[in-house]
Amino acid sequence: MTSGLQAVEHVITLVREHEDLARHGDGCSPEVIARAEAEMGLIFPPSYRRLIEEFGTWEIPPAEFPGVYQTPARGEELLGTSAYTLEDRTRLGLPHQFMVIMHDDVLGVVVLDTSRPDQDGEYPVFAWNPAIPEGGVMEKVADSFGEFALNECRQNLS
């Protein structure tokens, strides 16, 4: 198991152990995940896919992880990462290789750079700011989504 996937298993445990604080959905089917990937034209890395399968969307406040989800009010429309990614491409000029995993007051738009997969298929996490020339990448935040999510969850539970 990769470090990203190991980290995600810890995130799942933390969310389950802190049901009084954490909130989450019911998970996504492989068909819904494939549809979200097709809509973005990008593939989820293993660590993010695992959490989407488990929860769909989840949060340990104040961190909210959009994942992939649907609501009765929006019907079949997919919300979360795929919607944020498509919206930020149009609204902010987000480069195509970036997948939005979070909007954060401190970091701005948190993205996975799908053009830089490691040997396990994980993508590095960056804080992206559209105001910065040459693609807007500000700083590397983590080596994988799993590591980023675990750090965020631990920080919010301490």
Rank of each mutant, 00 (worst) to 15 (best):
D104F: 05
R74M: 15
S82I: 10
L21I: 15
F44I: 10
L79R: 02
L112M: 12
D113F: 08
E134F: 13
D88M: 14
E31N: 14
E59Y: 07
L150V: 06
Q119T: 08
L94A: 02
T114V: 09
N151G: 09
Q6R: 15
P30A: 12
H103C: 09
E87T: 14
G41N: 08
M99V: 15
I33K: 13
F145A: 08
T57A: 12
M99N: 06
R16M: 10
T57R: 07
E19Y: 12
E31M: 14
P95C: 01
T2S: 15
A142G: 02
Q70L: 00
P133K: 01
G25K: 04
S144M: 09
L21A: 12
E19C: 09
H103S: 10
I33Y: 11
H18A: 00
M102K: 14
E37V: 13
E17T: 09
A34K: 14
P62T: 12
E134G: 07
D104Y: 07
R16P: 05
Q119S: 13
L78F: 03
V106K: 04
C28M: 07
D26I: 10
A36R: 06
R116Y: 07
A22C: 09
P46L: 11
L86I: 02
G108E: 03
Y69C: 00
E59F: 05
F148C: 07
E39Q: 15
S47C: 11
I12F: 11
E64W: 11
L14I: 05
L150T: 03
A142I: 01
V137F: 08
R16D: 14
D20A: 07
P124F: 03
V8P: 02
Y69T: 05
G121H: 09
M138D: 14
V109E: 00
V125Q: 05
G93D: 01
A7G: 05
P30M: 10
D120H: 14
D20S: 08
P30W: 08
Y84T: 05
L5W: 12
V125R: 02
V110P: 00
F126L: 03
M1C: 13
E76Y: 02
F98D: 01
S115M: 05
G25W: 02
E31V: 15
S82K: 07
G121M: 10
D120A: 15
S29W: 06
A38S: 15
T85M: 04
M102N: 13
L5I: 15
F55A: 04
R50D: 12
Y123L: 09
K140S: 09
L112N: 01
H96I: 04
I33L: 13
A36E: 07
A131M: 11
E76M: 06
E53L: 11
H24I: 03
V141N: 05
G135C: 03
R50S: 10
P46N: 09
S47W: 08
G4D: 08
E147L: 10
V100G: 00
R35F: 13
L112G: 02
E37T: 08
V68Y: 09
R116S: 13
H103I: 03
G56V: 04
E53C: 10
H18L: 00
T71V: 00
A149L: 05
H103R: 13
T81L: 11
